[in-house]
Each structure stands twice: as C-alpha cells, then as structure tokens.
C-alpha cells in the first residue's frame, strides 16, 4: 500500500498503524512529532491510528535553529 512519508512515496504493509511505521524506521519515540494529513496525532493514539492508501504522513523532530 502506497503512502507519502516525509514527502516520499513509501510502500507500507496494509493495516499498519503509526506505531508500526515508527518501529520499522528505528526512531526514538519521545523525540518525534507525527502529523497525518495535516492533523497532529498524539503519541497515545499512535497504536490505534491506522494508515490508508495515499495518506500523507509527516514525521518531524525538533532540532537546533536560530
């Protein structure tokens, strides 16, 4: 199933939730922000939010900046 992750088309297993995607990318859970189709998803909803075809997922982190 094709979805967009950080602006790139990516193939994910059907019925994946956000938690699954984060796990496969080896990301540190406390350091990231999830935005799905323009809505921020709180960490407690990562496991019950399932991805659909053509979803737009942004995985964001806070870094140094001026």
């Amino acid at each position: 199933m094709l979805v967009t992750i950080n602006g790139k088309k990516s193939d994910v297993i059907p019925d994946s939730n956000i938690q699954d995607v984060i796990r496969t990318k080896n990301l540190e859970m406390t350091a990231i922000i999830i935005d799905l189709n323009g809505n921020i998803i709180a960490p407690e909803h990562w496991s019950d939010t399932f991805l659909h075809k053509d979803d737009d997922l942004e995985i964001i982190q806070i870094i140094g900046g001026g």
Binding site: N6, G7, L27, T30, Q61, I63, G65, G66
Partner: peptide
Amino acid sequence: TVALRRVDFGTPEENML
C-alpha cells in the same frame, strides 16, 4: 529558538528538547 525538521531516516538527530 528551536527549529522543526522532517526526520532524516538515514541520520536521525538527538532530540533538542
């Protein structure tokens, strides 16, 4: 000030916060 960036899956950075 801090900035927001898309996570670079190749080289993830530490959490600034």
